[in-house]
């Protein structure tokens, strides 16, 4: 009767995997205990994030990358995230259209997820879905973000290797030196490289990389817990070989340039392992997850303890400008005594 069991997930039962992902998406009360028992089995997969503006060809690239990994006999899971409508809460998840070549392959699992209003293009549900697929034994997990703009950099906290996909003819040199999405790449792919301007895009990206900030690339997130408990630093930080961010050209639809991307992704994983950065990234990711989980749980508890109409009354005061949001927070905390600030 029961569709999900830890054993089923670990043995790769697709129906069980699919249902558990639904549970984590819905915040189903049973999801957590499964995730707890799967957790020791996670941490094996190579998590590869693919991000970039809409229409850069992310889905097509993911499709071809998955195919290339299958040629190497590696099992591949794909999580494709598309945006949730802020108005209706609904979503159209259309990434499978570009992945029909992968149909019928038992070594592939594709799941479309809606962003459900989370900032940064990824959600907690995606993190949990990754854990399910990781525990189920998929060797590579490709995570395709929503068509990202300039600030959707959250993928860097989730993936081991981040690929930023660009296409020729999107903006000038100044776009390339702005902060944000361009800073998070471990690998740049200029897709649709048969279009005019491809060389210009490649050289602009290379120039940007030479300008410097990328050569000292590090995960940007430093949460509060991070400062309390520092990541152990490497004794010979100087000798640590830096990852030089490559700029690769592809024509995903024509299946050209794909193998070099796969080779580079593998090389990046080797680099992460050898330099110790893999551990650093995992650590940073887990710190972030812990903080997020703590925030959600505390919020839940706190809001659950408030008298029924306390929140709506507070909101009315905010709207009337009788109370500032910060003062409201302090008032709520004081009333519940969950540790107001001195």
């Amino acid at each position: 009767m029961s569709l999900i069991s830890t054993e089923k997930i670990l043995s790769g039962n697709k129906r069980a995997i699919a249902r558990l992902i639904t549970y984590v998406e819905n915040n189903h009360p049973h999801a957590q205990s499964f995730l707890d028992s799967l957790y020791p089995h996670t941490g094996q997969a190579h998590l590869v994030g693919i991000t970039g503006s809409p229409v850069t060809g992310k889905s097509s690239l993911v499709n071809k990358l998955a195919k290339a990994y299958r040629d190497q006999d590696k099992s591949v899971a794909i999580i494709a995230v598309d945006p949730t409508s802020p108005f209706s809460g609904g979503a159209i998840l259309g990434d499978r259209i570009r992945m029909r070549e992968l149909a019928g392959d038992p070594g592939i699992f594709i799941r479309s997820m809606a962003s459900r209003g989370s900032l940064g293009g990824l959600s907690k549900a995606v993190d949990d879905a990754i854990k399910v697929l990781d525990a189920a034994g998929f060797e590579v997990i490709l995570i395709e973000t929503v068509g990202a703009g300039q600030s959707e950099v959250e993928i860097v906290k989730t993936a081991h290797t981040v690929i930023v996909v660009e296409v020729p003819g999107l903006g000038d040199d100044v776009q390339a030196i702005k902060a944000g999405i361009l800073e998070i790449a471990d690998i740049f792919v200029v897709n649709k490289a048969d279009r005019p301007g491809a060389e210009k895009t490649v050289s602009t990206l290379r120039t940007m990389l030479e300008l410097g900030h990328a050569s000292t690339h590090h995960v940007l997130h430093h949460g509060q817990l991070m400062t309390v408990e520092e990541t152990p630093s490497h004794p010979d930080e100087e000798n640590k070989k830096m990852w030089e961010i490559p700029v690769l050209k592809t024509m995903a639809l024509k299946e050209e340039g794909i193998d070099p991307v796969v080779t580079t992704i593998d090389r990046h994983l080797d680099y992460l392992k050898n330099s110790g950065e893999l551990m650093d990234r995992n650590r940073t990711r887990l710190i972030d997850e812990l903080e997020t989980a703590l925030q959600l749980e505390l919020m839940d508890r706190l809001l659950g303890q408030l008298p029924p109409n306390h929140l709506s009354e507070t909101i009315t005061k905010l709207v009337d400008r009788n109370l500032s949001p910060y003062a409201a927070v302090q008032a709520i905390l004081k009333s519940r005594e969950v540790g107001s600030r001195e």
């Binding site: 697709k14 699919a18 949730t84 809460g89 609904g90 979503a91 259309g94 259209i97 479309s112």
Partner: peptide
């Protein structure tokens, strides 16, 4: 979508096997 549902759109020329596989994974 406008009614708040999440719609996985797979497009044209789907075989029954593809439809079953997508339904199961999704």
């Amino acid at each position: 979508r406008d009614a708040g549902m999440e719609v996985i759109y797979t497009g044209i020329r789907q075989t029954p096997e593809m439809i079953i596989e997508s339904s199961l994974q999704e």
